[in-house]
Amino acid sequence: MRLIRVLFTLVCILLLTVPTVGRAASDELRLYIWSEYIDPAIIESFERETGIKVLIDLYESNEDMLAKLQAGGVSQYDVVVPSDFIVPILIKLGLLQPLDHSKIPNLENLDPQFLNPPFDRANRYTAAYQWGTVGLMYRRDLITSFKGTWSILFDSKQQVGPFVLIDSQREMMAIALKYLGYSANTTDPAQIKAAGELLLQAKKSRYALGFEGGVGGKNKVLAGVATAAVVYNGDAIRATEEDPNVAFVVPDEGSVIWVDSLAVPARAPNPAAAHKFINFILDPRIGAQLSNFNRYATPNAASLPMINPEDRSNSAIYPSPEVMKKLEYILDLGKDLRLYDEVWTMVKSR
């Protein structure tokens, strides 16, 4: 009799646990994304409409995301949000799977300039999420004679208070290169080395507070701990609404323009849910809600009529033609990227 009860109990346990495993596989989506980069209400709407529970992990740099995927995250997450310049690396390493366009009909809503991008021809692996710039966020109440150049970081005579550098290799290197008058994508070893020396000099300044993700730099400026920080424009725009003494600018020497995209890791546990999520984000209404929340520019042409009018006219979000001329996309440099890796390692370790 005891044996029968034991067997009955085991059968009940199996009946209860097997469906649970099945639900976990089909009813969960694991999203790996930058912090403060999606409206929680969008997540709630997706869960409500699909019955799929979204679990979120956060990162602060493309390098962190890449390392996590290589360390096993490729089979842990269903959707990641890489920046343009790192997409070719993810593809070459076999960390992304091709998208099934038949499951993403809203892909057609993207503006033509974000279809067939140079870093992912025919959008085989990615769909544009948001785009923006990297610039300088600063306190107008603490910097009263700002001249609109990156010299506030790189010229000891122009430094007036604590500042934060952005902890993103290619973007921070690009800013140093632009300050020196070089291309953000140069492959000249001497120019890359000069940019590294400039960054090292800035890092060792008595005013330097080190390297942080864009959100970390933004928070230090808001708190008054830093007078300036290199940040993403959307982070800065939200900060200006919290404190009118905070401002954002793309300095005169220029900076970088970027596109972040949605992608599915090569061994994602739930690619079906991933495709549903990508298609959901590309819905015109959701795309507008996303940009109205995080204050970055939308790549979704069908969303533009629903963007807040004040944001559409804000040149810090949608740069003027004059500013656009000063911006460069960061490109995949193939084998020449090792030059950047070597210099960045030197800067961070000394």
Rank of each mutant, 00 (worst) to 15 (best):
2 R>Y: 12
4 I>T: 11
8 F>H: 11
11 V>C: 12
12 C>R: 12
14 L>D: 06
14 L>Q: 12
22 G>W: 02
28 E>P: 01
36 E>R: 15
40 P>R: 01
46 F>L: 00
56 I>N: 01
58 L>Y: 15
59 Y>S: 03
63 E>G: 06
65 M>R: 07
66 L>R: 11
72 G>A: 02
73 G>C: 01
75 S>V: 00
81 V>Q: 13
85 F>V: 11
85 F>N: 14
88 P>S: 04
91 I>H: 10
94 G>W: 10
96 L>V: 11
98 P>F: 07
99 L>W: 03
99 L>E: 08
99 L>Q: 05
101 H>F: 03
105 P>C: 04
109 N>P: 10
113 Q>S: 12
116 N>K: 05
126 T>E: 05
129 Y>S: 11
131 W>D: 03
141 D>T: 02
141 D>Y: 08
145 S>A: 14
149 T>H: 13
150 W>V: 07
153 L>D: 01
153 L>T: 06
154 F>T: 14
155 D>V: 07
159 Q>A: 08
160 V>H: 12
165 L>T: 09
166 I>R: 15
176 A>P: 11
182 Y>M: 01
182 Y>G: 03
185 N>L: 09
192 I>W: 11
193 K>D: 15
195 A>D: 04
199 L>H: 06
207 Y>F: 15
208 A>W: 05
219 N>M: 13
220 K>D: 02
220 K>Y: 08
221 V>K: 04
230 V>D: 07
231 V>W: 08
233 N>V: 07
234 G>P: 12
234 G>V: 01
238 R>I: 09
240 T>A: 02
243 D>Q: 09
246 V>F: 04
248 F>Y: 15
255 S>I: 10
258 W>Y: 14
259 V>N: 13
264 V>L: 06
265 P>C: 05
269 P>G: 03
272 A>I: 09
274 A>P: 10
274 A>I: 10
279 N>A: 01
287 G>Q: 05
290 L>K: 04
298 T>Q: 11
304 L>N: 04
305 P>V: 05
306 M>Q: 14
308 N>T: 05
308 N>E: 14
309 P>K: 08
310 E>G: 03
312 R>G: 01
312 R>F: 09
317 I>E: 00
318 Y>P: 09
322 E>Q: 13
325 K>C: 02
327 L>G: 04
327 L>M: 00
338 R>W: 08
341 D>Y: 13
341 D>K: 10
342 E>D: 13
344 W>P: 10
